[in-house]
Amino acid sequence: MARYALQRILLALPLLFGLSLLVFFYVRIIPGDPVTAMLGVQANPDLVARLRAQYGFDEPILDQYLMWLGNVLQGDFGISFRSRQAVAPIIVDRIPATLQLMLGGLFVSLVVAIPFGIRAGMKYRQRSDTVISTITLVGLGSPGFWLGTILMVIFALVLKWLPSQGYTPFTQDPVASIRYMILPSVAIGLVGAPFLVRVVRSTVVEIMKEPFVPYADARGLREQVIFWRYIIRNLLPQFVVVLGVLVGALLAGSVAIEALFNWPGMGRIFIGAVTERDYAMIQALILVYGVIFVVINLIAEIAQAALDPRIRLK
């Protein structure tokens, strides 16, 4: 088991390296020059040249990459072109808000998707499955910002139950913090839930087809034993892996939701950074999102191995 975990961790390193390459070069491929973006198209060519030299844009691209990577490894993500401030502290300030929203969204997804997914899978092609699957299909086609807007109109504007905008750190005032996070969490969670319902449903259907389920019945095992030990226990290893993927989807969804609910997470500065071609900021944000995603999936894979003895062997 420890060997498997170590192996997975070592395999994650080249993945992170690949991520750094992608992040760095992806930003260079986007048309438009940051200096032009800063100074405008009619800027003095001398000034442009000076600034390019100052930021190192006239160096060979490989040197630029190595310099950037070296700095990143030391926690230096560069200076924002827009605010002229160091990028790293800005992002670090915003990570807790994004993580809080992600956990809220994850919670909503799980609470909605687990019971309905299992129910649909166990009642495969029966009425409750048809109802759940139809609603799921509608959910899959509903974008987060649209859902979020609807929620906001109903619960904030009409019913006035919850605030539509804003944020309070959890450590400062937990109750207010939770009140603020409910609507955006539900919006994100409901985007992830249909995906999770589908995966749980099809996994349960597959498990129910395994000969060990009817055989457990033929042994006269109690229904609770069959449910927990046969169905749920076999669902878990595959479920944790899907959770890793789901976190990625929630992170992606959170960008739009943060903007919509004025939630001071990474997503909000991300949108600003993209429109302003704030290279250093874009790079740093993609990298942080990527690392969160890789780490979560690494944990999911190790958890899967802990839950499924057949994987540990490999």
């Binding site: 395994e210 000969p211 060990f212 055989y215 030990r229 046969y230 226990r233 076999n234 499924d308 057949r310």
Partner: peptide
């Protein structure tokens, strides 16, 4: 088929 009849994770 004993392989298929046994619960793989227990």
């Amino acid at each position: 088929d004993a392989t298929a009849a046994l619960n793989p994770v227990v």
